[in-house]
């Protein structure tokens, strides 16, 4: 069963087969858990390196098919990936600690990418919503925008309103169950990426 939920242009959500292969770097040599003020560091800070040089070098990239590649891998191994771009076989993964500007620096026309995925390591990392908003509004990205990682049904409604139109539900949870949450609220107050505030949407007089 696929874990991928996709919104059609008419807003209809359905579970679809995932035609993309996600390129995942090998695990880091040793798990580094840093402590700060007695607390385990939970999130990478903005701009912090996502993968080590060793991980990047050892990442296996499938030779054919549509591949979804972390931005840092693309940056380091552009030469061998370049040819996949014109054929529509390259999608990029942006982590929540990376910036939309860094992506823009690589792809002057973001719409040359058929797919951008934003990876959220922990569902409580709300940067994913601002990144979604920025990619859609500021950077004018029109193709598929996918939430991946710790993506759970109770955040889905927010993801949708922040501009995402596909959602890869975490592997141990049911995508079927998650579908319902996309309709949790029928008339939200504020605007979203594709929506205006309720007082511009309907007459409340």
């Amino acid at each position: 069963m696929s874990q991928l939920i996709q919104l059609a242009a008419n807003g209809q959500a359905s579970i679809v087969a995932d035609t993309w292969t996600r390129v995942v770097p090998p695990a880091a040599g040793e798990e580094s858990v840093r402590k700060q003020a007695g607390k385990v560091v939970l999130f990478k800070l903005t701009g912090e390196q996502t993968y080590t040089a060793e991980q990047i070098a050892n990442t296996e990239i499938p030779a054919t098919g549509k591949i979804l590649v972390p931005l840092t891998i693309w940056q380091a191994r552009k030469a061998e990936l370049q040819s996949r771009l014109p054929t529509g076989e390259l999608g990029i993964i942006l982590a929540t600690n990376e910036t939309a500007e860094a992506l823009q620096a690589e792809f002057a026309d973001l719409n040359s990418l058929p797919l951008i995925a934003v990876f959220v390591e922990r569902f409580a990392d709300g940067r994913i919503f601002t990144l979604g908003n920025w990619l859609r509004t500021r950077f004018g990205f029109k193709n598929e925008l996918r939430a991946i990682g710790d993506v759970l049904r109770d955040q889905l409604f927010f993801h949708k309103r922040a501009g995402f139109d596909s959602f890869l539900i975490r592997a141990d949870r049911s995508a079927e169950d998650a579908l319902a949450s996309l309709n949790d609220f029928s008339q939200p107050y504020q605007g979203g990426v594709a929506d205006v505030p309720v007082w511009r949407r309907i007459s409340r007089a």
Binding site: F123, A124, D125, G126, F129, T130, N133, Q155, F157, F158, H159, K160, R161, A162, F185, P188, Y189, Q190, G192, P197, V198
Partner: peptide
């Protein structure tokens, strides 16, 4: 109050 209620972008702030 209405604008901030279930604001999609600010549901999980730092």
């Amino acid at each position: 109050r209405q604008w901030s209620t279930f604001h999609p972008e600010f549901a999980l702030l730092p």
